[in-house]
Write a protein that binds this DNA or RNA. Sequence first.
RNA 1: GGCGGCGUAGCUCAGUUGGUGAGAGCGUUCGACUCAUAAUCGAGAGGUCGUCGGUUCGAGUCCGACCGCCGCUACCA
Length: 548
Amino acid sequence: MEPRPILVAVAWPYANGLQHLGHIGGAYLPADIFARYHRARGNDVLMVSGSDAHGTPITVRADQEGVDPIDIVNRYHPEFLRQWDTLGISFDLFTTTMTENHHDVTRSIFNRLRERGYIDLRTTEQMYDPEAERFLPDRYVEGTCPHCGYPRARGDQCENCGRTLDPIDLINPVSRVSGATPVLRETEHFFLLLSKLEPELLAWLESREGWRRHVINWSLQFVKDGLHDRAITRDLTWGVRLPDDELGEGKRIYVWFDAVIGYLSASIEWAQRSGDPEAWRRWWEGPEPESYYFVGKDNIPFHTVIWPAILLGHGDLDLPTNVPANQYVTFKGEKASKSAGVGRSVLEYLEVVQPDALRYALASVLPEQNDTELTDDEIVRRVNDELVAVWGNLVNRVLSMIGRNFDGVVPEPADPQAADTELVATVDRALDEVAASIEAVELRAALRAAMSAAQAANAYLSDNEPWKVVKNDPARAGTVLHHALQAVAGVNVALSPYIPFASASVAEALGVPSGEGWARTEIPAGRRLGALAPLFSKLDSPLFGDDT
RNA sequence: GGCGGCGUAGCUCAGUUGGUGAGAGCGUUCGACUCAUAAUCGAGAGGUCGUCGGUUCGAGUCCGACCGCCGCUACCA
């Protein structure tokens, strides 16, 4: 089978704080599992993402600390890299939107859409602070909410009643920058003509197959309700400059236009680094490439509507194959949140939980259909009662029996019985089942299928009792262990996208390649097995003492 | 308010186009085993499928209303 080019695009995190388990379970872990599977299968995977440097939360944070936005990004970007490395999230490139390349690519997309008539220049009115001599983003204007009377409502939304606002509706508006009363003033901005792209977009969405129900229904309705043209520039000094600074130094391309372009610019950067600057085209042009965008549910419209609109406007680049958006991992019923302080950072968890164990616990509760609740006790339970009990124990009991009774050398499969070959066949079927589920981005179901195969191997051992048989019939015991070992080898492949570190250890002990090929490798009789310590440690509850 | 999703065993979740007595993992009870990190294997118990109404020979599955939770609502991305 020809290798398929598969783009694994993962949401760009704001570089304004550490990440929590909700982020990982929502996007990064599923993307990594998907990517590892496809690499093993022999497909050409390009997995990219990066730190979003231009998001509003970053400028807000920088304002609070009185530092430059770039300082905030430079503080957290290396932490992200460390986090990916520790957790085994295998990006081909994790860059930032601060690179010269990204800015150039963004401008070239801008120019292309403008040439093709999908971007135009319009004059609008906007709040202006006469004292600070600058235009104000909506959220920088404060005043009394016209709906509920809350005195400190922001220009974009009232925190008290939750209604969306327009800053000109605020009573007694005040600039948060200087305290002055803002005035309306004319300003020029570029608009993306979403209304013009609407029919094409709708036709494309209606032709999608295999998308998650909540993703496709929401997207279709969003477009059917009618798309408005959106301003893609802002009165800012932080962000991608316009070509030739056309509107002056104080106008920048706004983050929601440039951030999604990061998928493309990162692909191009990866190609440049790889020594073949045109290599990115393999994942972006023509009918071959498949692209999967792993994002959280709050990010759906940007990946099912706005990014596809930009790509349609460009004309020569491929639209997403699927956007398997996840719902949320919640903690005690609450969505994890950097700003609200709900949920510990991933790096804190990694101090007390092995990366594979954390990956397993998260993978078993991925919020593919619903918000899913995950507590520390649940992590302990998943690891101790499932991962250690079923898989860690299976590997350990098989290897230690071969070690004790056969001197660590794989015994001969003398005179195999139906049960022996059936076990191995069951594992091979499980590999197909896992593959089919992962292809459909049903990663929880795939994990369950892999674990079921491990349980079948445990049941096989119980039925055939090699520890008892060995006393009177060593040849039969050897046959059973030989087949149990083949099952271990197969299940290890099925689990490899989920627990890559442990999987590599097992592969090494068995003397087989790791992460290459989606099939069981036969372990020949006579091979001496490597030593292997227990794969996982049991966890104690509570994970973090009793302070939370 | 509008749009979308969700509400199924103690817990976390599956349930294709409506159809034999509603499922899985874990927990729990009983039994087996003792090679293995007191791990494993087998059997059982456990649910008026959010509420009410409707369509149908038949609905967890379709329709309506209501309750609750989540997301979006175009200046968070």
